[in-house]
Structures are given as C-alpha cells and as structure tokens.
C-alpha cells in the first residue's frame, strides 16, 4: 500500500447542537478517485470544506500530504468576476508558484478547447465555458487532490451529461486524486468511481 495523501481519523464536526460528521475515518491514496453520496444536508460539502481547510473541525485529525495542492471546484464555480480567463489562470498559477504560467495557461485553454475565451470575463461566458474555465484554473495549479462539490447539481439532464464528459476529459489530463460529492448516483456510476455513502456522519463503502 502506498502512502496516503489524505488521512482522516475520528473526525467530528457539529454546528451548534447538530452533529454533522461523527467519528469519520478515511484514507485516500495518490491518484485514487472516489464519489461520496448522501442526502442533502448530510454533511458532504462540510466534509470537503474541512478537508480543504475552509472549515474548522471540532475533534479528530485531518492530514493532507500536499495541503497547498488541494483544490476545489465549487458548485457555483467561484470564478473571479473581474478577471479574464487568462488572468484567472495566470494568477492561480503564480500563487501556486508554477513556472512559465502564461505559456501553461495558453496550452491548458487550448487543451480544454476554450482558447477563444482567453480575454473574456466570467459574466460573458456560457455555462459550459465557465465550467471548463473552473477546471482549467484548478488543473494549472498541478493539484494532488481535487475536490468536486456537487459539480453537476445545477445542470439539467443534457448539460449534466456534457458535464460528466468534460470531467472525464479533464481528469485524463491530470493524475490527481479526486473526491466527488454528489446526491446523484448516476454521476458516480458513469464516471466509474467507487461509491461511499455518508450516513449518520460516517462513510460506508458499498
């Protein structure tokens, strides 16, 4: 067994009286890709926020081997409204200390077939283009772990299918581990990810 890039032990997180994660254990190896399923409000997004460091937790231990290489694609994408696509990629790459940021950004935009939006801001992009840009911004930082928070939940059936194909395309460009949370089992099945259920604040393998 290889060294895990994510190790969670006895993680507990509650909001006031309400306990969301209750003694959760989890390990993820480099390049491993999984899907976490659960009903709305069961703590899926909270788990991702805790892993990424956006949320504090009450007890337990969360160890990330590459904390600065853990990135998330948010449900509403979180694109930076006043920056063009190219500026977003360069800014993200420089913050992650990636050399030759501009050339890599150009190449990535070409690979994801969105080079034509290089000088456009998020407000002028279609939903699909914005989604590709969000993935490109994550990929340019050479992530070791990608967190996908309900990446397709706001899409209708046709767009959802396109979204899944896009994700397959994107993941082919990276060797990063992936944790995808969703409430739709079809997403996980189509991507052929092993499925875990988040029930009662704990992860259960199917």
């Amino acid at each position: 067994m290889t060294h895990p890039i994510l190790n969670i032990q006895q993680l507990c997180k509650s909001f006031g009286e309400q306990s969301v994660l209750h003694g959760l254990d989890m390990q993820l190896e480099a390049g491993q890709r999984i899907a976490i399923l659960g009903e709305s409000g069961c703590g899926k997004s909270t788990l991702l926020r805790v892993i990424s460091g956006l949320e504090e937790y009450n007890s337990g231990q969360v160890t990330l081997e590459h904390p600065r290489r853990c990135l998330m694609v948010f449900q509403d994408l979180g694109l930076w409204p006043s920056h063009t696509s190219m500026q977003q990629l360069i800014m993200a790459a420089k913050a992650s200390k990636i050399d030759d940021a501009a050339a890599k950004a150009e190449r990535l935009l070409e690979q994801l077939q969105i080079f034509h939006i290089a000088d456009r801001k998020p407000a002028t992009l279609s939903g699909g283009e914005a989604r590709r840009l969000a993935f490109a911004r994550v990929l340019i930082c050479q992530p070791k772990l990608i967190l996908l928070d309900e990446a397709f939940s706001s899409l209708d059936a046709d767009n959802r299918q396109q979204g899944i194909e896009l994700l397959q395309e994107v993941l082919a460009l990276s060797s990063a581990a992936v944790i995808m949370v969703t409430h739709n089992q079809d997403d996980a099945t189509q991507l052929d990810f092993p499925i875990f259920d988040l029930v009662g604040g704990q992860l259960l393998a199917r």
Partner: peptide
C-alpha cells in the same frame, strides 16, 4: 458569492491579492 473568495484562498492567493 462565498466561493469567489474561498477559491482564491484555496489557490493560495495572498490576503493582499
């Protein structure tokens, strides 16, 4: 939108940025 700053934070942008 909270994701705008959260994504910046995860990408490692400084407070100033």
């Amino acid at each position: 939108a909270a994701a705008v700053d959260n994504s910046a934070k995860l990408h490692g942008l400084s407070i100033g940025q």
